[in-house]
């Protein structure tokens, strides 16, 4: 299997799906000629032409609205939002329109569309460019939310997203673009939605994470192994549909769980997952579920302060130790 970056894996998924199906089109700000502000759409304009690869005005709400109309009319658009922060300008089309159209029109139409958006913090981009908004989307029924961790998952999940007939928020992590991993070449390599991945097996504690937080959880697990602490890491892959089955059976087995989320703590998705574990495993849990979350502040610019706001390997290790000592924090 060839090794490639997360960025190239996404790029490959786009190319394969565009080759396979001429109704797949893509657009966004600086997507075509400039090849994407994170260079994810490199080579697309050259291969597929202006007809299918388009630059748009800086009009986020309309980037999504046009994709909705195009999907309703029979295309399969992949709209790129330059970063997930700008999705907030498109929340009207995403939440008020995209997620509801099928339902409120009584199932008479469907929207086969994907919104790709890079996001997450950690590059000292300050408050307006470092957000993790996954909970916002997960909260709203009527769309799927995928957040790949590995290059292989990025490819397989994006291909599934493009072929799916539901609207999908496909949230990429800016700090994962350069990460590398083996990626299957098979153009039919797909990863189903709603199937979490036990990315590392273990017996003492379950760590539930997604996207870059899974990468940090894996590092934490490796360090803890030196102390003979065995962590099972569950990578959610998709937040909607949420594979509760996998993390609940893992927590039932280990009796302890830590949920790691990059988003803000207050009303964050980790609270929902912790509740599901408590609810399903109340009898078998040895200790309450711990949460490791983003700090409840707008992201500061300063490198020193920013670090305090995003879960670190060390904070995950600390949370694992606390549940092992019988006390859960957070």
């Amino acid at each position: 299997m060839p090794e490639m970056t997360y960025r190239d894996a996404i790029n490959l998924a786009l190319k394969e799906e565009m080759r396979r199906d001429s109704s797949v089109v893509t657009w966004g700000e600086d997507v075509a000629l400039y090849e994407g502000s994170f260079k994810v759409t490199r080579g697309l304009l050259a291969e597929f032409g202006e007809e299918r690869v388009k630059d748009t005005p800086i009009s986020e709400n309309t980037i999504i609205g046009v994709a909705i109309g195009a999907a309703m009319g029979g295309l399969r658009p992949v709209a790129e939002l330059m970063t997930v922060n700008f999705a907030l300008l498109a929340m009207d089309q995403i939440v008020n329109h995209m997620s509801k159209i099928r339902y409120m029109f009584g199932g008479q139409t469907f929207l086969p569309m994907v919104i790709r958006a890079p996001g997450g913090g950690g590059s000292q981009l300050a408050a307006q460019h470092s957000q993790s908004l996954e909970t916002f989307f997960m909260h709203c029924p009527g769309m799927y939310v995928a957040m790949p961790t590995t290059p292989a998952d990025a490819k397989g999940l994006l291909k599934t997203a493009i072929r799916d007939n539901n609207p999908v928020m496909f949230l990429e992590h800016e700090l994962l673009y350069n990460s590398k991993g083996e990626v299957p070449e098979d153009p039919e390599f797909l990863i189903p939605f709603g199937k979490a991945n036990v990315i590392r097996a273990g017996s003492d504690v379950t760590i539930v994470a997604y996207s870059r937080m899974t990468a940090l959880a894996l590092e934490a697990a490796i360090e803890l192994e030196r102390e003979s602490i065995s962590c099972e890491v569950v990578d959610l892959r998709t937040l909607t549909p949420l594979d509760t089955e996998t993390f609940i059976s893992s927590a039932r087995k280990t009796g302890r769980a830590v949920v790691v989320e990059e988003c803000w703590h207050s009303a964050g998705l980790g609270g929902d997952i912790a509740w599901r574990i408590h609810n399903a495993c109340f009898e078998t849990l040895l200790v309450p579920v711990a949460r490791v979350s983003g700090l409840d502040v707008p992201m500061p610019y300063s490198r020193k302060l920013e670090k305090l706001c995003i879960p670190q390997v060390s904070s995950i290790i600390q949370a694992v130790r606390s549940v092992l000592s019988g006390a859960s924090q957070g």
């Binding site: 709400n61 609205g65 909705i68 999907a71 009319g73 009207d92």
Partner: peptide
């Protein structure tokens, strides 16, 4: 809404249907 009539919907967010109309025109 009725796709058989190409009646592609009534929308209750003021101005919300305009971008969708543009997208439908593009698909056509």
């Amino acid at each position: 809404f009725d796709p058989e009539l190409s009646f592609m919907g009534g929308y209750a967010i003021v101005g919300g249907q305009l971008p969708i109309a543009v997208g439908l025109a593009l698909s056509a």
